[in-house]
Simulated scan of single mutants.
Amino acid sequence: FMAADVVNHILGGGGLSSRLFKEVREKRGLAYSIHEALLWMDHSALFIGKTGTRADRACETVDAVEKEIRRIAEEGPTQQELDEAKSYLKGSQMLALDTSSKLAQALLQYQLDKLPIDYIEKRNAIVDAVTLDDTRRVAKKLWGDGLLTVIVGRAPQAAAQPPAATPKSN
């Protein structure tokens, strides 16, 4: 569970420091923002992401995302990426719980995830215990098959035009 959260942070959940942000926005200039999340369910996980790009660059953007997903599945993260992700995840924990509503929401999620009552106190040690081998194994398991479903929206002008009229038959 935690190894997946760490490697997910490295791939795209880490905002400005993520591989997807660096590759898709900074290096290629394909999108203003890109983000993804790993959602846990009882018997599986769902990886969802979003980005905004020009219609004429949609294929290039999807290709860049797919390439990064394949790369992390095949190679896993580097030790530096792992160290930085662990440091961020540990340091940001208390900021994520800085209001009563955030704390209540987190406690509810911990309960839904069937985590122990002392999870908040143990979380940093759980993050620290994640190894490079753990993240490489999990990355291969999560993204070894690449993207399974990709949805791309229509160009704005196509969405604004009414559908073509169907000729009437006599």
Rank of each mutant, 00 (worst) to 15 (best):
residue 3 A to P: 09
residue 4 A to I: 04
residue 5 D to F: 00
residue 9 H to L: 05
residue 12 G to D: 11
residue 12 G to F: 07
residue 12 G to I: 12
residue 15 G to S: 04
residue 15 G to I: 03
residue 17 S to T: 15
residue 19 R to T: 07
residue 21 F to K: 02
residue 32 Y to R: 03
residue 34 I to C: 00
residue 35 H to D: 09
residue 35 H to N: 12
residue 43 H to Y: 11
residue 49 G to W: 04
residue 51 T to Q: 06
residue 52 G to Q: 12
residue 54 R to Q: 14
residue 55 A to I: 07
residue 57 R to F: 05
residue 57 R to H: 13
residue 59 C to A: 11
residue 66 E to R: 13
residue 69 I to M: 10
residue 70 R to T: 11
residue 72 I to Y: 06
residue 74 E to Y: 04
residue 76 G to K: 08
residue 77 P to R: 07
residue 79 Q to W: 11
residue 81 E to A: 14
residue 81 E to Q: 15
residue 81 E to C: 14
residue 83 D to N: 13
residue 83 D to T: 09
residue 88 Y to E: 12
residue 89 L to V: 09
residue 101 S to A: 12
residue 104 A to K: 04
residue 105 Q to G: 14
residue 108 L to V: 15
residue 112 L to W: 08
residue 113 D to G: 07
residue 114 K to G: 01
residue 115 L to N: 08
residue 115 L to I: 06
residue 117 I to A: 13
residue 119 Y to Q: 07
residue 120 I to Y: 03
residue 121 E to S: 13
residue 124 N to T: 11
residue 126 I to L: 15
residue 131 T to D: 14
residue 136 R to Q: 10
residue 139 A to D: 04
residue 139 A to Y: 06
residue 140 K to Q: 14
residue 143 W to C: 14
residue 143 W to E: 13
residue 145 D to S: 09
residue 145 D to M: 04
residue 152 V to L: 08
residue 153 G to P: 05
residue 156 P to E: 06
residue 156 P to H: 08
residue 157 Q to N: 05
residue 161 Q to K: 01
residue 161 Q to F: 06
residue 163 P to A: 15
residue 164 A to N: 02
residue 166 T to G: 13
residue 168 K to D: 07
residue 169 S to V: 13
